[in-house]
Design a protein around this nucleic acid. Structure first.
Lengths: 233, 233
DNA sequence: CAGCCTCAGTGATTGAGATCACACAGCAGT
DNA sequence: ACTGCTGTGTGATCTCAATCACTGAGGCTG
């Protein structure tokens, strides 16, 4: 019973976060239309190239957004967590999904059908604006991604960049120098566009240089500035 | 006199193209608010990192959209031509411009202030939708860009991809196997993320393999299929 | 416990492309 | 003609990371 209550509290908190920038009435309009489901790890919500069916909103869990080349190589665009909608651009434009969304852990996902989304957008200007701002956010994020992949051809710079990004996300945590490492070396490689082996070697190198320490899945970055100095170099 | 008339005709045609998906009344609402100016080659309309001032719409000419790394290297996202709005995402979200826009030839550009754009979006649902679809189009385009840069680490594959893209844009031309080469090798390198010298060498190689012929700024691609075979390879 | 996964660490080799360093062609201006 | 300037073509060298090929470490299941 206790856990049940806790779950409800969490759900509401997440809902607030998801639609925090919308009037409550409008948010509940979305809530009514959306269908929420629980997925296991590794579930594919939608795949690159599919015709859009609607928008998925992460309520709980983490989802990996990636694109892949014909040669099978994968690039992870970003990891999406609670409160973020996915596939908005595709749903609005009718163009095919630009990426593949796959759950990284058991996740609770809300789904809003394309036609319902468009209708809601027409009815409520605020929703249209909300959608637009989320797309432009995704766009900006993708531009940063592309920049980080190009402006640094040294793999160590890319890794340093990624880690600094982790620190930024962690700014509010109790221990801001520590991040939970929820990705395999392979996945890290897919985020920065290098091979798994290179990531292994870079980790070893960073440890030797005392830039990072690792115990289990906890990554400690004692000296952020030192890491940042790798970036401009 | 004759040339003057021709110019007017072109302008109208362009305007039609720009707002072809909007009701005429709404399009003219935009026209009224927008301020059209002529820029020389090399003018910077807005730069990466600047606070957004509004949307720029290309009426005539071509504009280069690029992002650049701290080390000075540049990546050209795309070349924008008549009818396309630029900086929409930034104007809508209030986030800084994600790229730099620079004219590649003398160009006529309309400018719509951010506040006017937002007001128009609120007043006319169609404009909001139009904006949203343009952003999602930019997003999709950027995703393709990122894919093409990653899924091929051989430079020749990237160049082949780029050229096939040129052919696609040229589908309607009188001679569909011929494209006008309006970019320097340096710029081509910036589009596919390689050095100028590599582009030179690749061109030489392609000519030797009879994949392309070049006289002046005309590029003839006699055998599209052969070029495409480089891509999956 | 043995067998079988997935991850991680590390050496050896290799190759593609960056970089440096030229030479040259075309074109504008004084 | 002389001087710049910008864009191009090409050789020589070098460096970084991909790739191949292992060895282990830990976790799960039968």
């Amino acid at each position: 019973m206790a856990t049940h209550i806790v779950n409800n509290v969490q759900k509401n908190a997440v809902a607030d976060k998801a639609f925090s920038d919308l009037p409550a009435a409008v948010a509940s309009a979305i809530e009514q239309e959306a269908l929420t489901t629980t997925y296991p790890t590794g579930a594919v919500l939608f795949a690159e190239g599919q015709a859009p069916r609607g928008v998925f909103i992460v309520r709980r869990g983490r989802v990996k957004l990636s694109i892949c080349g014909s040669d099978g190589r994968t690039l992870i665009l970003r990891i999406v967590d609670s409160g973020c909608p996915m596939g908005v651009a595709a749903a609005v434009s009718g163009r095919q999904y630009e990426a593949t969304a796959e759950t990284q852990e058991p996740s609770e996902i809300s789904f809003l059908r394309q036609c319902d989304l468009l209708r809601l957008m027409r009815q409520h200007g605020e929703i249209a604006l909300w959608v637009t701002q989320h797309i432009s956010q995704d766009y900006a994020c993708t531009c940063r991604e592309i920049r980080d992949l190009i402006l640094s051809d040294s793999a160590s710079e890319k890794l340093a960049r990624l880690m600094v990004g982790w620190l930024d996300q962690n700014a509010t945590a109790t221990n801001p120098t520590q991040v939970k490492l929820a990705l395999t070396h392979e996945e890290i490689g897919q985020m920065i566009g290098t091979s798994r082996e290179t990531v292994s070697r870079l980790f070893a190198g960073f440890k030797k240089q005392r830039l990072i320490q690792q115990n289990g899945c906890n990554l400690v970055i004692p000296n952020r500035v030192a890491l940042e100095s790798l970036i401009t170099a």
